[in-house]
Write a protein that binds this DNA or RNA. Structure first.
Length: 549
DNA sequence: ATTGTATGGACCC
DNA sequence: TGGGTCCCCTACAA
């Protein structure tokens, strides 16, 4: 079976449409016309590409099953023909060529080219081995067994052990929740007792250059994006499981990234570093998905991470601990910094409550404000200038609240962004002025609203179709602004070949990041660097990908 | 209210 | 080396 497949590939490769067309012209039997021979490389739109491609693959398969004999003939006689060298063609040969041509036409008509492209993707080279090592399967060494009968002993009366209550949690994580902090910052992928590498600590404390560069005009921006590439060194396994959140450290001298995964792990990776596993240090501050992480722009040595397990912690590299920031029973979903100094936060849980957390005061001194529909809060985003405003992605509407006017329940929204027909997965204020809000919605649309006037119902500026159906196994896609400018954003994509797309707020596509060798998975979590020309993308197996210039 | 299903990736045998 | 299997706590449609 395998050999047959490779043979078939060889056939389609060797017979280019030009070859066939040429021979057919020579044989002057142009029954179907050369136009039919043209390949139609389809630029599949966002609309259900997966369904389409699956159907296509199926068609390709069944046709392959139907025609193995013909194709074998084609291949054999083709070799023969190569060594023939005569221009005059016998009737048999003409017939054969016509067969080849018809087969080729049929195959092109079912988009074999695209199908083989997809097959290439399916039989892609193995994923990057950089970063965290695959764990060798722990094989339990059992004592040699000998039956009681052979030992001439009486049979035991066996009772089954009780079934564990929640197998999922018990199997996959040692505890339901980590104890209260501060927890020492011991990398789990290093020998126990080892100190953090000093170069790593130094880098984490490095601040970004604060002077704001002039934003490039769009043409220059596109050129800069085009210049950003990925290589083998720029892919690494940073956490063990699927990435739920990721962020760049603000320093610009090197690329340092953090990623949080499904089982509470946080991986830190410096591109090209010597420490840990290819520059990766792995920590375990939580036990459930790390829904949101962000470095403090005021104190770059601090990384805040939030988990569904109900804990919000602050990794302080200088102190080498994880401090508690906020804690509830479970169900923390997302947060954003409220003040410029990053000392206060807006924290949202999946029951629909929003809390204002002040890190300078001890304990959970928070206000609970909302009784929304349960389990509908997906995202919070603070206005970059008017810090009292924050946007909350509720089920089918984004509400903007004023943190100074919050009540325990039924707080009045300042503005509401309407028009979403399914649940909204994210909503973000534009990074420089806050004059725009960018939303991603399960109704397969990315929307941009004009919030400059902050009226009751800010106008919808742009709607972009984008396939958001990632299914159960992938993190949801979110459109995220480039923090370097006011008007462009990045979003992962389900399209094949795999890609990450950048759009202007007008809906104009600016660039698609692709790479045959180093990008072959969906990068659900994408983010631009705050100052550098660099982009990160996280996939479902804990691998980070970097495009940079 | 309950049930079914879509969906990607890689690990492991 | 390739295909079977697992992952799973989600959103939506029926």
């Amino acid at each position: 079976m395998a050999t047959r497949r490779t043979k078939r590939k060889a056939v389609t490769k060797e017979l280019t449409p030009d070859d066939i067309e040429a021979t057919v012209r020579r044989s002057s039997r142009n029954a179907l016309g050369p136009k039919r021979l043209q390949y139609s490389p389809e630029d599949s739109t966002a609309e259900t590409p997966s369904k389409k491609s699956r159907a296509k693959r199926h068609v390709a398969k069944s046709s392959q099953n139907k025609k193995p004999k013909d194709e074998a003939d084609v291949e054999n006689s083709d070799v023969e023909h190569t060594f023939d060298g005569h221009g005059g063609l016998s009737l048999y040969e003409l017939e054969r060529l016509e067969n080849i041509r018809q087969n080729q036409a049929f195959l092109s008509s079912i988009n074999l080219v695209q199908a083989t492209e997809e097959l290439k993707q399916l039989s892609r080279p193995k994923p990057s081995q950089r970063g965290l090592m695959r764990q060798a399967a722990v094989k339990e060494v059992l004592p040699a067994r000998k039956s009681l009968r052979l030992q001439n002993k009486e049979a035991e009366v066996l009772t089954l052990p009780p079934e564990p209550r929640d197998t999922l949690i018990h199997e996959r994580s040692s505890q339901v929740k980590k104890p209260h902090g501060p927890l020492t910052m011991g990398p789990v992928n290093m020998e126990e007792g080892n100190e953090l590498p000093s170069q790593f600590v130094k880098l984490c404390c490095e601040d970004s250059a604060k002077e704001r560069k002039m934003a490039l005009d769009l043409k220059e921006y596109r050129a800069a994006l085009k210049n950003m590439t990925i290589t083998e060194e720029k892919v690494a396994k940073v956490v063990k499981d699927r990435i739920f959140s990721a962020a760049f450290h603000p320093c610009s001298s090197s690329l340092l990234m953090a990623a949080g995964d499904k089982w509470g792990k946080v991986g830190l990776w410096k591109l090209g570093a010597e420490w840990g596993d290819d520059g990766v240090l792995l920590f375990e501050p939580h036990t459930r998905p790390v829904g949101c992480i962000a470095f403090s722009s005021a104190r770059p040595s601090q990384l805040l991470s939030l988990s569904y397990d109900g804990s919000l912690r602050c990794m302080d590299v200088e102190k080498a601990v994880f401090d508690d920031v906020y804690d509830i029973e479970d169900g923390l979903k997302t947060f954003d910094f409220l003040s410029h100094d990053c000392s206060t936060l807006v924290v949202g849980n999946w029951y629909g409550d929003v809390s204002i957390v002040d890190r300078r005061t001890a304990g959970n001194s928070h206000e609970s404000l909302h009784s929304l529909d349960p389990k509908t809060l997906r995202c919070v985003s603070v206005h970059p200038l008017q810090k009292q405003y924050f946007a909350v992605a509720e089920s089918k509407v984004v509400s903007i609240y004023d943190s100074r006017c919050l009540k325990k329940t039924k707080s009045q929204a300042v503005s509401q962004l309407r028009g979403h027909s399914l649940s909204i997965s994210s909503a973000y204020f534009s990074p420089c002025t806050g004059n725009r809000v960018l939303t991603s919605c399960m109704d397969n649309h990315i929307r941009i609203y004009d919030t400059s006037a902050m009226t009751t119902n800010p106008p919808l500026l742009t709607t972009i179709r984008h396939d958001m159906h990632t299914g159960r196994w992938l993190s949801k896609l979110s459109a995220v602004w480039d923090p370097k400018r006011e008007d462009c954003f990045v979003v992962g994509s389900m399209m094949k070949p795999r890609r990450v797309q950048v759009f202007h707020e007008s809906g104009q596509p600016q660039h698609s990041f692709t790479d045959n060798e180093n990008l072959s998975t969906v990068l659900s979590i994408a983010a631009f660097h705050p100052t550098n020309n660099a982009l990160l993308g996280g996939n479902a197996s804990g691998r980070l990908h970097v495009f940079s210039s």
